[in-house]
Nucleic acid binder design. Structure first.
Lengths: 173, 173
DNA sequence: TGATGGAAGTTGAGACTTCAAGCAAGTTCG
DNA sequence: CGAACTTGCTTGAAGTCTCAACTTCCATCA
């Protein structure tokens, strides 16, 4: 959402306002992103009893060797803060879907580990979730649009990355 | 975020999992959306003292005749629930940027009205916000990509619209 | 008129997020 | 070694969001 003050020939230090067309694009983005997030949150909350982000965390763990990830690593890969992750894992632990384990090589470190029940929850609800994503996004877009969306979002994500590739974690050797 | 169980020839009732390429697209989308929301929230919270959604509400009001909108109308146009809006307006009211006014023609109705200070806050912080949006999105995309993004998001948003065009509000005559 | 159902908006509790502060363990370097 | 700094992660409080009531008022229709 943006403002568009009276159109004017850009003066020296006048900010570069969005053009009408840019505003339409931006508005569409915001609306779609808002609706989509909401939609997926609602779907997963109803069916699986957790918000979309939490589901994403379980997926990341499921895809990882030994179904575990260091807290920081998980936070980075999910693009959330450690604090947020800490709270999230606490809740997932309470639900029995994740368990914490001490890191042997670094006494400060913690692993988040997907439990058996966590895997079961994923197995049970993945189909419904994929469906939701398909219906909301992929089924509505042409292959070219899908490709385009991927490229665009990759570019945007890259530009916002906390800095560096992030692949400079010591534990990754 | 999705799961991709062992690839298999889709059996009768096997859900249509995302292909590898679709997964990459989806992952990029989620990452970009997460980072972007976070980035804008942080920027606005730091500079203007409110999250991105709240800023969006002020903008909607600023663009409306007499700088006011019925609660339901504002909620729909911002794609959020009435409940959320109710809380949000309460907070914006406390900050002095919005004021509520009774609707003369419907005693249940409320207008959210942008105050003078609300306008001032927008004036002061719009440039910084536009900058942030430009840097994160528009400056990184080609004109074709911008256009494409607009089309794609318009399609997705349309598919998730609560149903109907929503333009069937009585007060709009 | 007045019963019924729907619409507008609010509320409170609980869940989630943010922010700043904090603790403990690793690292650096004189 | 040990002070100073950094890293990994957690914590609590304050802010925000969701969900399910709930209140009030409007609209319909007999």
């Amino acid at each position: 959402m943006n403002t568009a003050p009276a159109a004017s020939s850009a003066s020296a230090d006048e900010p570069r306002w969005l053009t009408d067309e840019e505003q339409r694009v931006w508005r569409s983005y915001i609306e779609a992103a808002t609706l989509l997030e909401d939609h997926l949150d609602r779907q997963l909350q109803r069916d699986a009893g957790m918000p979309h982000v939490y589901y994403g965390l379980l997926v990341k763990l499921a895809e990882s060797p030994r179904r575990r990830l260091r807290m920081t690593e998980l936070a980075m890969s999910a693009k959330i803060t450690r604090s947020r992750l800490s709270h999230a894992v606490a809740r997932l632990e309470k639900s029995g879907w994740v368990r914490r384990e001490d890191c042997p090589s670094d006494k400060r470190g913690q692993f988040a580990v997907l439990t058996e029940e966590g895997q079961e929850v994923l197995r049970r609800h993945a189909p419904g979730h994929v469906d939701a994503v398909r219906q909301a996004v992929f089924d509505r877009l042409t292959p070219e649009q899908q490709k385009s969306l991927g490229e665009i979002m990759r570019i945007v994500a890259e530009g916002l990355q906390p800095s560096g590739t992030g692949a400079d974690l010591p534990w990754l050797r």
